[in-house]
């Protein structure tokens, strides 16, 4: 294994008195795609929030590209090259497609380059550049969100439930794009309730349950040994 792009050591986090992460250990190798699976309530989304800086950990360490980042806010992490696509609403609904894309230039990419890349991958967005993002379909909204990942060439791409509320056909289309991103050598940590869809594009998989990572390994061995845990809750 090469140097991990993301290394998490004994991470704890809680909502009030309820501990949601109970000592997470996880390591994502550079250039790899890792799927993070597990039933509802296993703590996956909380882990994403902590990694992306939206939530403070109570203890533990996170290293992003070798840099210790436990105290950084989301905006600093974004500038360090972490690109997070959160679950649910990941666009600004009252901004046009173009404006949504322009905001991505905060990550240090020129605005023109963002638009160019986005429209090259998703020609449909070019036709709708003046449309309010909130009035587009869920799939199109995720395309806008994905454009950010494509254009900013992040050190680590954090995908949280990309497929939520989307029709299977559109999920396939989005994951095709994720597949294309992986070809550029971007490291990805991908949280997904559709275990199989995520495993298709992954090099490694990790399974969370009860606030811990209970298994890591190659996708097929994970699927064989851990299907009970993965599928027990959220299917």
């Amino acid at each position: 294994m090469s140097v991990p792009i993301l290394e998490i050591v004994d991470l704890h986090a809680a909502y009030g008195r309820i501990e949601v992460l109970r000592g997470v250990n996880l390591s994502v190798p550079k250039g790899a795609v890792m799927a993070l699976l597990g039933p509802n309530g296993a703590g996956k989304s909380t882990l994403v929030k902590v990694i992306s800086g939206q939530k403070k950990a109570t203890s533990g360490d996170i290293h992003l590209g070798g840099v210790h980042v436990r105290t950084g806010g989301p905006e600093e992490l974004a500038r360090l090259g972490l690109c997070t696509i959160p679950e649910g609403r990941s666009v600004f609904p009252n901004l046009t497609v173009e404006e949504n894309l322009l905001l991505m230039s905060y990550a240090g990419v020129p605005a023109e380059a963002v638009l160019e890349t986005a429209f090259a991958y998703f020609p449909r967005l070019k036709e709708r550049r003046k449309q309010l993002a909130g009035t587009m379909s869920g799939g199109e909204q995720q395309m806008v969100a994905m454009s950010r990942a494509l254009a900013s060439d992040p050190a680590l791409l954090l995908l949280d439930e990309l497929s939520m509320g989307l029709a299977p056909l559109i999920v396939d289309e989005l994951y095709e794009t994720v597949g294309r991103i992986t070809e550029t050598g971007v490291s990805i940590l991908c949280i997904e309730q559709f275990a199989r869809t995520a495993l298709k594009i992954s090099d490694y998989a990790a399974v969370m349950s009860g606030g811990r990572v209970v298994a890591t390994g190659e996708p097929d061995e994970i699927l064989e040994t851990m299907s009970d845990v993965i599928l027990g809750g959220a299917a």
């Binding site: 396939d172 559709f194 199989r196 869809t197 996708p219 299917a235």
Partner: peptide, 19 residues
Amino acid sequence: YLGYSDEDDADAHTVTDLP
């Protein structure tokens, strides 16, 4: 739930490396 069903055309979802 799965993103595809057993009855779907397997080619559309090449999952050759998965059981």
